[in-house]
Design a protein around this nucleic acid. Structure first.
Lengths: 345, 345
DNA sequence: TTGAAAGCGATACCAC
DNA sequence: GTGGTATCGCTTTCAA
């Protein structure tokens, strides 16, 4: 091997040695790159003598060699990466828990879950950005993708695309979170308890629209054609906003409120209590998501319980789809939305 | 276009065409791969005739061509990926918000944040797994890495390693979350209000030990050498567990409790109220993290406010470190822990 | 048991 | 303007 004088080093990297490659390991161990690969990957098909193995391992350790995942999967032609685009809004407790479970479960199946924070792009642009990573499967939260996006992903090798949102997308497996059902269940519950002037809290945070709009629509739908009215109430997740809302409570003349979720509901509850509005006597309150929080406040909060998929179930669905890419996409209804009536309604 | 009879398809991929590459685009457009690359990357140095450009773009669109990120960064020798190993525990509200901000901010600086769910590995194994991805920077939450891990990452090209946790790690930038300070602040506050028999709630969830232990230790340290006592109270995040704790409250004989964080504090508050223990008269309660939640319950919850780094600040730190890898690691104290006294203490 | 070499996909230098 | 082609790091077939 001839020593070629280095070109004048670029000033950007002052003294940093280049990252060691398998060739470096081979050189140091006095073997070929092929042997290095065999040893480090415990290739069963090939027998390598014990002394050689040791020399290779030692050389690798000494250089701090770490294989290059991109090169590896480029050569292999596939990876076991499951991509999850990060949602455009900070994760809530339900979602955090779900992602965590999902990661654990897929990890046990030997996949690697990657949450990819490529915000700023949207629609097909985003799908292309995800496809560049050549994931074996993609789990898309919310309405972040359309049929063309799914097609792009599949054409670039994704063996399963799963959407976790309100509506079915052509070509993708769907976990349907039917938020309208949540709104409908809440509204019907309030109606059954004799309430007729129902407020629906809609978060001012626009990033929650994808959840809040369907919930509002569901409530509207449930009460349409009855003698009850629905009033949309815009609310930011701050005490000031809640106080402002409570201040005009009497003039609103509502006898019930469905508050998007338990966190907003507790916020409302607190502001109403401050103004002396009695719950549930003057106004019934119901939230959604059945967070522990709702059981801790007084009066205990009525809520709509949502049964999310267990991370394990979903991991198995993904695994099945990956092993068997021919099968037509499944759709699963995931919102068995059931009302949990407690003290506040 | 000639129809070539497929070779006996491997049963794994029934009808799926291979993923299109730039070579396919070149073939279809009747140009070379080099030209394709120039056109699609808008290479400024080279002029390509307008008709050629169009042909290339059209071919790419028709094939649904998406460049292969791994191949690209293999060739380029670097990427702009910032790796964040996912924490071993479902993210709390504070952390979710922080990650979200951090992602947005780094996105604006043209980095890509990737949360990597490689649970199961630990210590140097984990560091090696991260290094395989050749990230340009790594942000490690918690005590997930040691000095050797940092060295491994740097040797494989990471230009910045930042730890977000309790203690400084050799070679890495550190954002120090000194949880002992939180415990100390809480305990001192209770002491100043005349409390002498202090309980400290420690979550039974072992994955929170990395936060809860230092908080407990801080409380112990603050009251050490005074006439006050500290009692460790194990508590799971469930109503039953809280009720069980409340049931033996009298016999515990405590006059104050520091409850790890606001969520646990509210849980305790609720259970105590149920047993008729008056707060703050019989027992003072203080939480931590200053979640909105604490302002919504009655009595309003005293808490320890923690000032986390803004995502933007941290993004800038990372960017600076990446552009200028020579500079010695900075350490920043991030816990300006200040007590917010409200009604519960 | 080990080595030489082909190639995975994209890019950039150097000719034409 | 455009086309060859070497190269990034790794795996794997084939030959020795």
């Amino acid at each position: 091997m001839v020593q070629i004088p280095d070109p004048p080093a670029p000033p950007s990297s002052p003294a940093s040695r280049p990252v060691p490659t398998s060739a470096d390991v081979a050189r140091l161990a006095g073997v070929s790159r092929a042997t290095v690969s065999y040893v480090l990957n415990n290739a069963g098909a090939v027998r390598i003598s014990e002394p050689t193995r040791r020399r290779v391992h030692e050389a690798a350790r000494e250089l701090g060699y770490v294989p290059h995942a991109a090169a590896r999967s480029l050569r292999a032609g596939h990876s076991r990466m499951v991509l999850m685009p990060a949602p455009p809004v900070p994760a809530g407790p339900l979602y955090s828990q779900f992602v965590h479970d999902f990661q654990q479960a897929l990890g046990r199946l030997d996949y690697t879950v990657v949450q990819y924070g490529a915000s700023g792009l949207r629609g097909d642009e985003a799908a292309r950005a995800w496809a560049e990573l050549r994931p074996v499967a993609v789990l898309v939260p919310g309405p972040g993708i359309g049929p063309e996006g799914v097609a792009v992903l599949k054409r670039s090798g994704a063996r399963a695309v799963v959407t976790l949102g309100c509506d079915r997308v052509e070509g993708a497996h769907a976990l349907l979170l039917d938020h309208e059902t949540v709104g409908r269940a809440a509204a019907r519950h309030l109606y059954d308890r004799g309430r007729r002037r129902v407020g629906v809290v809609v978060p001012r945070e626009r990033s929650l629209d994808m959840f809040s709009r369907p919930r509002l629509a569901g409530a509207r739908a449930a009460l349409d054609g009855t003698d009850a009215t629905v009033t949309e109430l815009s609310l930011a997740y701050t005490e000031e906003s809640a106080r402002a809302l409570a201040a005009r409570w009497r003039e609103l003349g509502l006898d019930a409120v469905f508050a998007f979720n338990d966190e907003y509901a507790v916020l409302v509850l607190s502001a109403l209590a401050e103004r002396g509005v009695r719950v549930p006597e003057d106004t019934a309150v119901i939230g959604a998501d059945d967070l522990l929080l709702g059981r801790l406040v007084r009066p205990r909060l009525s809520t709509v319980h949502i049964r999310l998929p267990s991370g394990r179930d979903l991991a198995e669905l993904v695994d099945r789809a990956v092993r068997n890419p021919g099968t037509p996409p499944e759709s699963r209804e995931l919102l068995a939305a059931t009302v949990v009536g407690r003290e506040s309604s």
